[in-house]
Amino acid sequence: MLKTKKLVKIFRSDEVETMALNNINLDISEGEFVAIMGPSGCGKSTLLNILGLLDNPTSGELFFNGTDVSYFSERNRTKLRKNNVGFVFQSFNLIDELSVYENVELPLLYLKNSKAERKQKVMEVLDYMQIAHRKKHFPQQLSGGQQQRVAVARAVVTNPKLILADEPTGNLDSANGEEVMKLLTQLNNNGTTIVMVTHSPIDADKAHRIVQLFDGHIVTESIRKA
């Protein structure tokens, strides 16, 4: 599903040049659950942003379902993202001014779904996430665990093939973190490909494969379960 070849990302300021990713070769199959680990600043989130077409590489290639998308225009990247990729962030990134229902509905508005279709899909996913009873609440009225469930609902409401999660349990206590990991595992069991950045070895153990990054390099990869 995702393939990178000699992927390089360099951040440049006036005087400093930082190589965030250095020759990353990674192959992620459809239906796989991959965890990316490594110390802070090793390039995990940069890699996730490039895999999710939120950022362009400096050099190298990125293939999405066999298509070279390395240097797609912003318009094409947006189109590919909204049809195929769901994002879950550590800090939830919900819109405070919108209700739970409206936050989850948002990606469907971009896809120009009808109002009836939107209602059906939003309620379906809110039920699945067991948060439907909070649909009229605003993010600030929810606990961290509930907010992350809404964020996962927003990520999956378009039925994306790929979910990219950047430390999804990083701001949660262990019980809520475990709930979110259960949701991600269920989604993966239903066929969704998941790439997750994490600091937690416990969360990483839920993945099929762990990729260890260090200083922008892949240091090692290990298979966890069949």
Partner: peptide
């Protein structure tokens, strides 16, 4: 670092760097 990890005792599984 890669070499050290590759050559490490295979009875042990890497958890975290």
């Amino acid at each position: 670092l890669k070499k050290s990890i590759e050559e490490y005792d295979k009875n042990w599984d890497l958890v975290q760097i």
